[in-house]
């Protein structure tokens, strides 16, 4: 049984492309256009370890969403996929363990590194006691 990846991005085709790629890579992918439906989906009880979060979202910004999700699901690891080239990680998110390697600028010419990062994080999570 493959692991779940949660994608939150307001751009549908971005969601779809990421979803297609990751599914091809063997992930189960849940993609949402906003944070609220993603939360609803999580509350349904699905265990999701990886979340690929866009920053500019219709209901809240990505940083706030990460803080909220981390509070609710501390085990969840986050990758940031943003179209803003001026984005820089806030210090509090760095304190949560995020770093610049978790940030992926749109447009991604190659989605392989993102998929590899997700895999690495998931593997690390599983080996963690």
């Amino acid at each position: 049984m493959s692991a779940w990846v949660l994608i939150v991005d307001d751009e549908e085709m971005i969601r779809e492309n990421l979803k297609a790629y990751l599914e091809d890579e063997g992930w189960r992918v849940a993609a949402f256009e906003a944070v609220a439906p993603a939360l609803r989906w999580l509350r349904e009880g699905t265990l999701c370890q990886i979340c690929i979060m866009d920053m500019r979202l219709p209901d809240m910004d990505g940083n706030t969403a990460i803080r909220a999700l981390h509070q609710m699901y501390p085990e969840m690891e986050f990758l940031i996929h943003t179209g803003s080239s001026s984005y820089s990680l806030p210090d509090d998110l760095r304190a949560l363990g995020l770093d610049d390697d978790r940030v992926y600028q749109k447009p991604l010419n190659d989605m392989a590194p993102l998929a590899a990062a997700a895999r690495t994080l998931a593997a690390a999570r599983e080996t963690r006691p």
């Binding site: 085709m13 971005i14 492309n17 600028q105 447009p107 010419n109």
Partner: peptide, 12 residues
Amino acid sequence: NNPLGVIMQGSQ
């Protein structure tokens, strides 16, 4: 960037 991303990721 978003449509570019769609184009590039879609192409990939």
